[in-house]
């Protein structure tokens, strides 16, 4: 639909913002988006320490409250452990991911699963996880991938980690745009249906 028509950037941004506003007017979607944002940031932050998470959940005598507190401490690392470029990338990606999930849920509820475009954020998610996990020097999910092509420089890996996270954000913006078109179309259908219903009612009244 969008590939055949050349839509100006301004209009694209307007469509995205209108769709976001539609979601923000519904508390259920706000909650869903916030939960998705927090979960995604947590997944990126803890991605290199999943075994530690399993240990905390299953093998420690901590209370549920203490376990939740432990996970929450991880979020502090966004402001202490990462450099600002990577931190900002992770925060922005998580924010966009929340919006993406909100739109995805909205479109599925209105138009069904079949209406979802194929590129709906999966690759952006992969990019951000691969890049965002690079919290320590050279510690990244990217390391084994890059090692296979002979790239073993730790400083290089740090830079690539940040770039991957930002690339993930770009990809997810594309996904948000695709979904916002569907949100707009379902809103358009809704308003048309309402108008038709009102028209029918007024005809019946007459």
């Amino acid at each position: 639909m969008s590939s055949k028509l050349k839509i100006p950037l301004k209009s694209k941004v307007r469509v995205i913002l209108k769709s976001i506003l539609t979601l923000l007017s519904k508390p259920t979607y706000i909650v869903l988006m916030v939960i998705s944002m927090i979960s995604m940031a947590g997944l990126i932050i803890w991605s290199l320490n999943l075994e530690l998470i399993a240990y905390i959940i299953f093998d420690t005598p901590l209370t549920i409250f203490e376990k939740l507190e432990f996970f929450a401490y991880g979020y502090q690392s966004l402001f202490t452990s990462y450099d600002s470029f990577l931190s900002l990338g992770i925060i922005i990606f998580s924010f966009l991911f929340g919006i993406n999930i909100g739109m995805l849920a909205y479109v599925i509820r209105r138009q069904g699963l079949k209406s979802i475009p194929k590129k709906s954020g999966g690759s952006g998610f992969m990019f951000a996880i691969l890049g965002g996990g690079c919290v320590a020097c050279g510690t990244s999910l990217l390391a084994p991938v890059l090692a296979t092509v002979g790239a073993t420089s730790v400083p290089l890996l740090r830079g690539i980690g940040a770039i991957f996270t930002w690339a993930g954000s770009v990809l997810i913006v594309y996904s948000i745009y695709q979904l916002s078109l569907l949100v707009a179309s379902s809103n358009f259908k809704d308003s048309n249906n309402k108008q038709n219903d009102n028209g029918k009612k007024s005809l019946i009244n007459e």
């Binding site: 290199l48 905390i56 432990f70 401490y73 502090q76 320590a136 510690t139």
Partner: peptide
């Protein structure tokens, strides 16, 4: 261990410079 800094606490590997509270919880255990 796959990078630095990494820590072994209670036999668990921790990757990255985690916040103090994370280490505190593991040391308290």
């Amino acid at each position: 261990v796959r990078g630095t800094p990494s820590f072994v606490v209670n036999g668990e590997v921790i990757a990255g410079p985690q916040p103090y509270q994370v280490f505190k919880s593991l040391v308290d255990l």
